[in-house]
Amino acid sequence: MAKLLYAFSCSIDGFIAGPGGDMSWLTPHLHPDPVVDALIPRIGALLVGRRTYDGDDPHRGGPGEGQAFGGGWEGPQFVLTHRAAPAVPGVSFAGDLASAVAAAKAAAGDKYVNVLGADVARQCLDAGLLDEILALPVPVLLGGGVRMFDRPGPAVELEPLAAHWYRVLG
C-alpha cells in the first residue's frame, strides 16, 4: 500500500522556497544526489499543491524545465486545487484532500506518493495522512520565504529511519 512522503530540499533555516515562491536559490545545488536518485524509482505518484504546480521551477532554462525532478521522474500527478484547471495529460485535479490522497495512493500502488508543496504537506500532517518525511538540507540561509512547515499546534513526534528520513508518529 502506498505511503505519503513529504520529501523536500530546504535551506538550513527551514525554507523550501524563497520570497514569492522563488526557487532559483536551489538551481546551483541541483546535482546528482544518491538519496534522491534512490528515491525517484520508489515514487509512484505525486500529490501537488496548486501554488507548487503553478510555481517557479529550479530547472528553469534547462532540459528538465517543467518536469518532475527535472525530468528524472514520470508518472501520474494529482493537484489539489479549488480553481478550474485546463486538462493536462498525466495530471488530475482534485478539489478536496481526501479524494486527492485516495486517487494518488491508488495510482502509486505499493510505491510512495510524494507530496510537493508546504501547504499540502501541512494539510496531510494535520489530517493524520502523512507517513514519512525526508528533509534534504541545502547549505543556504534564505532568511525568508515558504517554510517547510508553517503550522501552529502540538508537537509531532518523528522516528528516525535514516539520515534526514523520519516516520511520522503522530
Results as ranks from 00 to 15, higher is better:
S11P: 10
P58Y: 07
G20S: 02
D13A: 10
I43W: 08
P160W: 07
A135D: 06
Q123V: 00
E74I: 03
A106C: 08
D119N: 12
V168S: 07
R42P: 02
H29A: 12
A68V: 14
V140S: 05
A100Y: 00
W25E: 07
D150V: 09
I43L: 08
L116R: 02
M23E: 14
A162S: 14
L129W: 07
G75W: 03
V113S: 03
R147E: 06
G143H: 00
G44W: 05
A163C: 04
E132Q: 15
V35F: 09
L30D: 04
R51C: 08
R167C: 04
A135H: 06
W73E: 11
L158D: 11
D119K: 11
G62L: 14
D126R: 10
D131N: 12
V88K: 13
A2M: 13
D126K: 11
L141A: 13
V140Q: 12
D119R: 12
L142G: 07
Y112T: 05
A100T: 01
H31K: 15
H29K: 08
Q123E: 15
A84S: 14
H29Y: 15
D57A: 13
G70L: 09
W73A: 11
P19A: 10
G49F: 01
V138A: 08
H82P: 00
A162G: 10
G128M: 02
G90T: 05
P32Y: 09
K105Q: 14
V36H: 03
G143D: 01
W25H: 05
L5N: 11
P139A: 12
L116H: 06
R42L: 14
G145C: 04
I40S: 06
D119F: 02
R167T: 05
Y166N: 09
Y112A: 05
H59S: 12
Y53E: 09
G153V: 10
E74H: 15
D54W: 02
G128E: 09
Y112V: 05
I16Q: 00
D150T: 06
V88G: 05
Y166F: 15
A7R: 07
E132G: 14
I43G: 06
